[in-house]
Design a protein around this nucleic acid. Sequence first.
DNA 1: GCGACAG
DNA 2: ATCTTGTCGC
Length: 243
Amino acid sequence: MSRPAFPTPPDLASAARLQRELVKGVKLSGDWRHVRRLAALDASIKRGGELVAAAVLWDLDSGMALEAGIARIPAEGVFPYVPGYLSFREAPVYLAALEQLSSPPDALLVDGHGIAHPRGLGIATHLGLHTGLASIGVAKSRLFGEAHSPLSLEAGAAVPLCAADAPLGEPCTKGMQIGWAVRTRSRVKPVYVSPGHRTGIVQALETVLMLPRNTKLPEPLRQAHLWAGRARREGLEGRLVFG
DNA sequence: GCGACAG
DNA sequence: ATCTTGTCGC
């Protein structure tokens, strides 16, 4: 039994075409009431050429990681990194990491943008569409859109991230909002949160703010980052079960 | 033509 | 993302 392959476009033009087609299927609403476990995804790259990904299965009730799935893919021939096309490079190894988990998560938390993307199809959105799961994107830096209003320095503060074509200086109206700039920690540079798939704008923010935040990144993503790096350095693979 | 540009 | 030591601050 094999899951559907993740299509790799031959060039940027066809990749953009595919994104504009796929975006039609994005749902910006969904029911998160029964989401109990989410998978946090992050990747690391080995110089000589290997993509390593970690999927940390996070239990919302206990606030702890249950297990981690690790996968690696040769960088040879993999889609290059081009801003706006990240999913074609990293989604395949993320999907492989997810398969290492003993059971599928209820939703995805991805290191990267959701709909806060030039064509509305950031990696979190693309992965949500491909898997059918609800998803949220959390990026460490901005790719698309502008945060008009000033973001206060307190932890938990958030301001809307608006489509770049919104009237500058004016607060963007709903419909032009594509996410949030979120201060996860006092005085620390914000992260950018946007819905991926089957998730509302407000739901995305609420979900991220309910997660433990001990560093700039929400805890599940921080752990995914640590495992991806450790896996790369130590050659880990497969599944790690905690507790 | 000149910047901007997830990881 | 990766290359890298010390250093400033809570």
